[in-house]
């Protein structure tokens, strides 16, 4: 029962996205076919092909019928045709999806790990100089646009130090197989993934720090100390355990932002994911492609959020009323 209630939000969000995708080109002044396909595409099209497109989008019929036609095409997995790539949008998009997922997944892993460790460290020394420096440093980093950090990393590690690859997701035609290939892909992944992780450290960092701060005042620390365990080890263990939930919830919330950030990072590193497709689509005014990427990314974000939420509630029903991004409330329920 709760699932239905909760997924209603997502369903509504999905409808909004569909509406944006459907109405935006149709509300533009001028011929909707031009708006949907862009002028360049139409120049290369024969009148027959244009007629076929009008039929296909039901452009000669009412808006309601057009919407039905649009939805049924989506149900068939038909996202339209990209004239720039001369291929169906779905094929183009799904070739790029794995790269973006790889990038975002790695960045999430890095930011969760590094953020928690730095946060716990900071919390342990709260009020001290290290704490303040870390806090200020991470807030400063968070203020940079993703692409800026990416560019600086690229200049420093790629151009000046010459230690990491300049562009792409792997060395083309290097003939690597097996482990060498994995290594090559990882080498290309380091810079973009860590750039993306760096600007997104803040949330996890603050969560872990808060948890650590609150734990230091708890009675079981004293108990543990009495048992002869080293205070620091115990605190880390507890802090790590207690901040796990909020960190994971936070990842769910952050996923959307990460994916958006990845789109920019990919442009900087010519990483062959969805971001590069967006850039190409913008340059070539390939609207079907832009719409396809938009739809796929937003739906992925929705599904991930839903997934995290459902998982979260299923595992611990007691936590239902207090999903929060601050570790504090969770800690009080323990």
């Amino acid at each position: 029962m709760f699932r239905l209630r909760d997924s209603a939000n997502y369903l509504a969000a999905f409808l909004i996205i569909l509406a944006v995708n459907f109405f935006l080109p149709r509300l533009m002044p001028g011929d909707p076919l031009t708006a949907i396909y862009g002028e360049e595409a139409l120049v290369h099209m024969t009148p027959d092909a244009q007629e076929e497109l009008i039929q296909r989008f039901a452009l000669d019929r009412s808006l309601g019928e057009q919407f039905l036609e649009y939805c049924s095409a989506l149900l068939r997995g038909d996202l339209g045709y990209s004239y720039y790539f001369n291929d169906t949008v779905s094929a183009v998009v799904f070739r790029a999806v794995p790269w973006t997922l790889l990038l975002v997944g790695t960045a999430i892993l890095i930011s969760a790990l590094a953020g928690s460790i730095a946060g716990m460290e900071s919390g342990w020394r709260r009020g001290k100089r290290t704490d303040r420096a870390l806090l200020a440093g991470i807030m400063f980093l968070e203020g940079f646009p993703d692409f800026f950090i990416g560019m600086i990393m690229l200049i420093v590690f790629g151009v000046v130090l010459k230690v990491l690859p300049l562009a792409g997701a792997m060395t083309p035609y290097a003939g690597y197989t097996g482990l060498a290939l994995v290594q090559d892909i990882l080498r290309h992944l380091i810079l973009p993934a860590s750039s993306l992780a760096l600007v997104n450290l803040g949330g996890t960092f603050l969560l872990a720090r808060n948890t650590m701060v609150s734990i230091l005042g708890e009675s079981y620390i004293f108990t543990a100390r009495a048992k002869g365990l080293r205070e620091r080890v115990v605190s880390y263990r507890h802090a790590g355990r207690n901040s796990l939930f909020p960190v994971i919830t936070h990842i769910g919330i952050q996923f959307g932002r990460m994916v958006t950030g990845a789109l920019f990072i990919e442009t900087v590193f010519s990483y062959p994911g969805l971001g590069l497709l967006i850039q190409k689509g913008l340059q070539a005014r390939d609207y079907p492609l832009l719409q396809g990427v938009f739809l796929v990314v937003t739906v992925t974000v929705l599904v991930t959020n839903l997934f995290v939420e459902v998982l979260y509630k299923k595992i611990d029903p007691r936590l239902r009323p207090c999903i929060s991004t601050t570790g504090r409330k969770l800690e009080t329920t323990v």
């Binding site: 790889l102 790695t106 892909i185 796990l244």
Partner: peptide
Amino acid sequence: KFMFLMLLFLATMGAAGLITT
């Protein structure tokens, strides 16, 4: 259990990327 599921999720995403490439 939750952590396990989460790791599984991340690993799948990563693997999906590696396999296709």
